[in-house]
Each structure stands twice: as C-alpha cells, then as structure tokens.
Design a protein around this nucleic acid. Structure first.
Lengths: 347, 347
DNA sequence: CTGTTAGCGCTTTCAT
DNA sequence: ATGAAAGCGCTAACAG
C-alpha cells in the first residue's frame, strides 16, 4: 500500500505556518526568519519530505528532463554516447529518460509520443534504420522543444547535429587497404536510409577512384545491419569467381562477423583477405587478429550533442541558429590489415 | 522560444465545449456523443495536442514510471538486464528512468533522491560496490514505493530480489578446473561488500575443500573491480614462488584482463595456466582462446525483476510478501580451460 | 450526454 | 517576515 507522502502542507500544519512560508524556507528565499527556516528544514527531514517535482514542472512548464532516443543499446556504442551526454546534462541540472526503439520505426514513434507526454525539455536523437519520415520529430520543433541529432543525422531537419567525418574516415580506411597492396576491396555497407552509411560508401568509392581502381558493383553490398545477414553476404563475397582481397565493413560488429566467417573457412587474415571496421568497439582490440578500424570519439559525440542542446535551451527568446559539429575520426591499424604492426603503434 | 502547448481547454474553447467533455472524449469515456468525440479527436490532432502526463500524475499520484539504478553500464551486462526489464515493464504500461552511479555511493544517494522527487512508482536496483549503508533505499520502503534488488542484492532489506546461484556457479567452475588436473587454483575475487562476490568466493573454497585441495590464502585476492588493478594482481600472482596453474576470476572483464597479461608473458593457455570467468559477456566467445565462463541468464534477470516489481505494484492493499528468485547458471567450456573442446559443445 | 466544481502540490504575486 | 489566493492541466464526482 502506498503511504502518504509528506507535502509542504503537512510541514506547515505541524509548525503552524502557511504553506507559502514553508515553500520559501525550502527554496532558500531570503525573506524568511533564520529561526523559521531552521524549524522547517528540521521538520522536512523528520517527515522524509521530498519536493514533488511533478507539481513544480506543471507550474513552471519545465521538467528539467531530457529524452535520449537511440535505435539500440546492446552494442557498446550508444551506451558510451549516453554516458557522455548524461555527464554534461547532469552538470546542468537535467535528468535523462532513455528510450531505445530496437531499430523499429513504429516503436520510435511511440517513444516520441511518450517523451512529448512526459514534457521533456529537449531530446537527443539517433533515429532507426527504418526511419524515412521525420514528422514525429517535427512536432517537437513546432512546440519549440529543441532537438539535437547525433551519429545518425538527417538533412531535412533544421536542427543542431553532431556527427563524425564518415566520408573522411572511410576514405582513409580504404586508402590504407590500397597502400597495403589490396586491389579488390569489397564494402559491406549499411542501409541507404542512413546518412552515415551513404557517406562511408562515398568515401570508399572516392578512395578507389582516386587511386585508379575501378569500382566493381559486385563488391558493394548494402544490408540492414542484421548480423546473420552479414554472415550470408560475406560467404557470398568469398564464393565469387574473383573474390575480394579486402573487406571494408560499415561497423565493427559486421567486421567481426566477417572475421569469424573468414577464419572458419581457413583463409589467412590479412594475407588472403584484410578487414577494416568502423567505430573501434572495445572488442576490436581483444579479438585475434586485432581489428583495424576507424575510431570515433564516442564520449565526445554525447558530450557535444548535450552541449548543443544546452545552447538551444539557454536561449530564452527565439531559437538560436542550429549548429553542426563534425568530429574527426582516427584510423587504428591492427593485425587484420597488417601482419607486422607498425612499431610504436599503441595498439 | 517555447511555444504554447495545446491543452484540453484550447480544444474546448475552439469547439464550444466544456473541458470535461473534451477530457471524456479523449480518454474514451462512454458518455460522449459519437459526433462530439469525433470533432474533439480531429481538433486534438489539428492542434498537435499531447496529454500532459504531469498533470495526470499529480492527480492520480501515479507516474507510471519505474526507476532503474545500476552501478555502471559500460560493460554489456547491465544494458542487457535493462532491456529485459524494460520489455516487461513497457508491456505493463510503465516507462523507465535509468540512473547509473558509476560505482559511486554518493552518486547513488543523489540518484535515489532524484527518483524520489520524480515520484517513480517503483525502483529496480543493483547497488554500487561501495554501498554499505542502505538507508537511502529504506526511504522508498517507508513511503510504500516497492523496491526490487537484482544481481547485487542485500540481506538486510526485506524486499523482493533476483539473483543467480553464484555459489553453485563458482563451485562448478572450480570443480571443472580440478577435473582438468589443476591444483593451484587462484581466485581474483570482488569486494567483500558484494554478496555475489562473497558467494562466489564460498563456492570456490568449498569446491577446493570437497576435493581435498588445501586453501592457500596467497592465491585469493579480493579487489575493487578496477581493471588496471586486476592487471597488477595477475602479475603479482604469476610472480609468486609457486605461481597458480589456474585462475578463477570474479567476472569476464577481469578474466579477459588476466588473459591479456598471461598471453603477453608468453605463457600457454590453458596448459600453463587456465582461466575461468563469470557472466559470458559476448566478447568471451570472440577472444582467443575462447573464455570458459559461468553464463548467467542476463535477460531473464531483468524480466524477473520487472515481474516481481509488477507483483508488488499490483497489490492494492498491504504489500505482498517479498519474493526471492534464484536463477540457475550454466558452465560454458571454451579454449581457456580445455585445449580440445568437447565435441557437440555449441560454443 | 454535457457542464460545474474541486483539488492534486507547488510557486508566486499581492496584501498585511 | 508571513499569509491568502490564484493557477499550472487534468480527472472525477456531482448536477443537470
């Protein structure tokens, strides 16, 4: 059974004060006699009083709560982003509600409604791979609730965004493969609905073209990020009449799945086929061989996104112009592309 | 700038109705003319109306929100538990606020206050390794807000709890090491403040004793789960005059850290030294050699904890008796203890 | 079927 | 320095 939760009225009654005075004492208003404040504080403590944030939020139209929407958080990427964001937001006095949509567009819409009903003051979003309509985010904009996209960002919304330089990261990765002598470089790409997926694909293409390597459409496979599909596609690539001598994967989980398949088939990595991933998930340093990968500043993505949101929140009057932050990536070379790791390489 | 958010009063005014009628139409109350309901719904849609959950919560004294407190969520364990719990809770119409205390007792207390002020209907808790005083959880109990502990549970609170059979899991793991011929089995244990740490230690001890192997205190090291310390302790163990021939680690991250140290020193696994972890983090199957580990039903821990909480929530009158659920573990044998994996082993 | 009224817990004028 | 009263958005009696 739910017990009665102490309210300022309870404190007021016991102390023979008005609730106004109690409220003032509790919030640190100057116009309260020191003695009175002391008595109020003591009684509040004694009654296990906790201010009811709901009532305050209803009054002020501010919940001090930020919603974070991510497509999943089983892989280590999004939890790390969330931790970074939460750190910055907590410092500014904001709480956080986390929603994960499990890569489902329908769930994402439900979650958006939920955050709207919870009256969050702003949201941080990385959309699902199936999201092509962004109407449910525009509602926030119309209501003046700031939205910041991160990692998976969208052109068609005029909001602040944080991304990494996916094009550049992909370009450098493929360039590295070319430098190690690879020529038939396959790309296991993500769905076309994701901008970062398209950017990485473009980086891959341009790196090949700039190095006079023709693009072979048979070596480019776009898939929906479901790992068992990755398995199928890697096998498909290896069964080609002219199989690839290198694979650039859209992300680390995909690369690791590929690595497993390739090892199972008894091929040598990187001699028969080299592999590069994207993100530098912690696993990538632990597996054998270590996975060469494009590292993203994961924490920073969250921190920056939170800061952009705070910028929007700070503006009392009309919304400040939206900002775009693009963070750099860093190629980390490990055994999956280089049998003799460079000396001095910290990995 | 924050725009005005449509309220039922806005709808009522535009339609020349009373707000009660609008409220009834919106909540699906039967006593509304079909035509009226239709007009209300249409106008609500047109105005981007979203019910204000704050107002309802203030009225009903129910927020339909559950707080989940975890010590960290960088390792994959807690995110997986949270996903399981969230799944069950969402089905019952509850939202979730996630707090992580970063293994800090002080942060945990702050988070508890926060959840109290947010008026959550219940909480799921796994406490920090530094939590020895549980007063901040007793406040919930006093207010009649149900609390369920999971994974890291506590004897001194009379609440529902979900754990795995840590003792049994540890016992079987050590027994397995003995069966493979190991005799000097070290244990890298967790802090004494965690019950599951103590239980695993007891399982380790009893397995040795039952097999007539004397317990050597020099081989038991209790540490604070900070991975760089694990590194130091593993080196320390290997430097002993009589180094261990096997290591049972409190969890997989510790085991993997040990594995790295041991490989770096050029020792053979499992011949020179075998390793067993605890939890079966996904990494454990990917590293080389694969890590033998005690698997926990991670999803189920979250689901069960959520169910126990719903049981408490469902009870209108006095609180139902608290329940204890102990889930089984399963030993998964991989290369770190067995150079020739058993045929038919799915891993 | 619809309108009126009270009140959830709190902050904030406006009086005193 | 303190009290009285209004009101945030909503639901739920209570009237009609």
């Amino acid at each position: 059974m739910r017990n009665h939760q102490a309210t300022i009225i309870d404190i007021a009654k016991t102390l023979n004060l008005s609730k106004s005075t109690v409220s003032r004492a509790l919030t640190g208003h100057p116009n309260v006699k020191a003695k009175t404040r002391e008595r109020v504080l003591e009684m509040a403590d004694q009654l296990d009083y906790q201010r009811n944030q709901l009532a305050i939020s209803l009054l002020t139209n501010r919940t001090q709560t930020i919603g974070i929407m991510v497509p999943e958080f089983l892989s280590p990427f999004f939890p790390r982003v969330i931790i970074g964001a939460q750190d910055v937001l907590a410092q500014a006095g904001y709480n956080v509600i986390i929603c994960h949509s499990n890569e489902s567009y329908a769930t994402e819409i439900v979650n958006a409604r939920l955050l709207l009903a919870s009256r969050v003051d702003g949201i941080l979003v990385s959309h699902t791979k199936d999201t092509r309509n962004f109407e449910h985010f525009k509602i926030f904009e119309r209501k003046g609730i700031p939205v910041v996209f991160f990692n998976r960002i969208v052109d068609e919304l005029d909001v602040s965004k944080v991304a990494v330089d996916d094009y550049e990261g992909a370009y450098r990765a493929v360039e590295h493969l070319i430098n190690t002598g690879k020529r038939r470089i396959a790309h296991l790409s993500g769905p076309d609905s994701l901008l970062n997926s398209r950017d990485r694909l473009n980086g891959y293409r341009d790196a090949l073209t700039d190095n006079q390597i023709p693009i072979d459409p048979a070596l480019i496979i776009s898939y929906d990020l479901t790992l068992d599909k990755a398995n199928i596609y890697v096998n498909h690539l290896l069964n080609l009449p002219q199989p690839p001598d290198a694979l650039f994967a859209i992300n680390d989980p995909t690369a690791i799945e590929a690595l497993k398949v390739i090892k199972n088939r008894g091929l040598r990595i990187p001699d028969d086929i080299a592999i590069v991933g994207f993100s530098d998930d912690p696993v990538s340093a632990l597996i054998e061989p270590g996975l060469t990968t494009v590292a993203q500043p994961v924490d920073d993505i969250g921190r920056q996104a939170a800061r952009l949101l705070l910028n929007q929140l700070a503006a009392e009057e009309d919304r400040p112009a939206s900002e775009l932050v693009v963070l750099p990536t860093r190629l980390i070379i490990r055994g999956s592309t280089s049998s003799a790791p460079l000396p001095g390489n910290p990995y």
